[in-house]
Write a protein that binds this DNA or RNA. Structure first.
Lengths: 335, 335
DNA sequence: CTGAAAGCGCTTACAG
DNA sequence: CTGAAAGCGCTTACAG
């Protein structure tokens, strides 16, 4: 029932090759011809079949996006940045969540899912040392990493170590010396942001001559409820902590909750600082180190587009973070 | 460089038709043949080209997802529900955000973007009376609406009127009689959830013999900062409100902030209730009416899959909401 | 600037 | 259960 390029060619009295060129806006078409063809196509309400174009041209016009989690703030923001820059170029995005968001687990690996379907892939927030990534590389299309680095791949990320240091330096400047740390998982793989943030925490303490105290590190798994428990644990160590650095804002929310449930005042009795620049940090007065998450997605998209068109090899970019002090560290005075 | 089905056929000593059938798991293939073909294909590391399959079969294997916003909680949750149910069936999702998330605005309408690319589309959180939807319908593929209804389309939504009523009834039961309302936009189109929630608010008041007072309705545009201002406005009316119903949890967060900034206590001096069941409502002790957002996405996916395979006409489903009282209405005692 | 023709890699009646 | 063959709707050297 749908029209084909042949119908348009016939109506315009030209070859299908010319219609194809005209409709795609290629250079080598006489302006008058192009105009006429375009007008006729529009008149017939014709549109090229993307599927046929893809098969004929060998380009998929799609990129893959791989991420462990699909409904989390960080991913969502990166994704928005990607969509924003890619949609105008008419590239489709094929999403694959490798994580445990699936009730039944995701049967396919990202590599299998993406195979023969994409011209390149953006990997968000995944450890760069996994089989998953390994298999993705076998696809032999450009890959760009967001939030991590890899010796052989393009990437865009932040300096997690420095970011963490900014957070803890802030606490230190406020006079705190017993500073708790709510991290993610107890034994993260090498190379991932958690390690760097941990190192930044240690750096800051060391610069003040404060040694690392294992009792002050607890784990919140990057979720609110687990961070609540972690904070409860932290509140029981002695000598007591007067401040806590959380590796994510969401964990910081959990920590804040536990603190007020204990009858303590966030920012006055115990200082809390997060990491991310979550969209609700402002309204809940949470001090944090902001990372330009959406921009991460934009930059990754640009890298990928360039790589797909073969215009360059691997590139790396590190974006800046900024400390945003609020009353969760400054106290009621700042509210 | 990539292998084709012909290579596999040659290696297996069968026709391409048989390879095609075997690899797709069709019934009419001798089990032994299938097994052998599959083994050989695997040995060659061969995978069918989805693009070629699509062109040959006429099915796109994709569905479209249209939404005004891409990085908002509601959308994200629905999307996760969709992804979760569709990914295992190997259907690709083509996303189109029609909203103003784009720096440069989105040049294409959803209809144009989706054209010839999808077997069906899910429309999330859009007013059902728009050109956008109109053009989508012209695609002549099944459409299912999430969060709204339409006389001619399948849909899955909640009863917004009843949900709002639950919220306000809760406030009324607590003894409040001056109840503010933070809505979205001043003049929403007909047929959309805002109107229903407004009606539910009025229903509840009317049942207690309380008349509608225009001074008590302010607008927060579904954003935190605008809700903060709206709440500030509300705090200045007299006689004063003792409670407020916000049409979204995010607006409720803004309201809570304004209230505490004024030195008042949320839940004790002023009760606040939201709407949605946002993921952080619990940690911030916000009373709310929860809607099963992810489930909305799952149900929509099932509807769409059935429609795509021609198994049924339009269907509607209304999911339940549940009141979740917390200390933002119950007061410190519940904390 | 334009066209004829081959080809992209599959699927699907149709026939057996 | 299997195969030969046509066809899906484009794009792209190649030739002019």
């Amino acid at each position: 029932v749908a029209l084909t390029i042949r119908d348009v060619a016939a109506a315009a009295g030209v070859s299908t090759a010319t219609v194809s060129r005209a409709l795609r806006g290629l250079e080598n078409v006489d302006p008058k011809t192009r105009e006429r063809v375009v007008a006729i196509a529009r008149g017939m309400n014709f549109a090229l079949s993307p599927v046929a174009s893809r098969l004929a041209s060998g380009r998929t016009g799609s990129i893959g996006i791989v991420t462990p989690y699909i409904a989390r703030w960080y991913f969502t923001e990166v994704f928005a940045g990607v969509e924003e820059t890619l949609a105008p170029h008419d590239v489709d995005m094929l999403l694959h969540s490798s994580g445990n968001g699936h009730s039944d687990g995701n049967p396919l690996s990202a590599g299998e899912r993406m195979r023969r379907r994409v011209d390149g892939v953006i990997v968000i927030g995944m450890s760069p040392r996994t089989d998953e990534l390994e298999r993705l590389a076998e696809l032999e299309v450009p890959v760009v990493l967001v939030g991590a680095q890899h010796p052989e791949l393009s990437s865009v990320c932040i300096d997690d170590r420095l970011g963490a240091r900014k957070a803890v330096d802030h606490l230190l400047a406020l006079g705190h010396t017993r500073i708790g740390l709510i991290g993610g998982r107890p034994l993260p793989t090498k190379f991932i942001p958690e390690n760097d943030r941990f190192t930044g925490y240690c750096d800051a303490l060391a610069a003040e001559g404060i040694g690392y105290d294992d009792l002050l590190q607890v784990y919140g798994m990057f979720t609110v409820p687990e961070a609540q428990e972690a904070m409860a644990q932290l509140l029981d160590v002695s000598p007591p902590v007067t401040a806590v650095f959380c590796m994510s804002d969401e964990m910081a929310y959990g920590a804040m909750r536990t603190i007020s449930q204990r009858g303590l005042r966030v920012g006055d009795d115990i200082a809390v600082i997060g990491f991310d620049g979550h969209s609700l940090a402002g309204v809940f007065d949470l001090s944090t180190v902001e990372q330009p998450v959406r921009e991460l997605g934009r930059v990754a998209s640009h890298f990928l587009m360039r790589a797909v068109s073969g215009r360059e090899g691997t590139t790396e970019k590190v974006l800046e973070t900024v400390l945003r002090p609020r009353s969760s560290t400054l106290g009621a005075a700042a509210r």
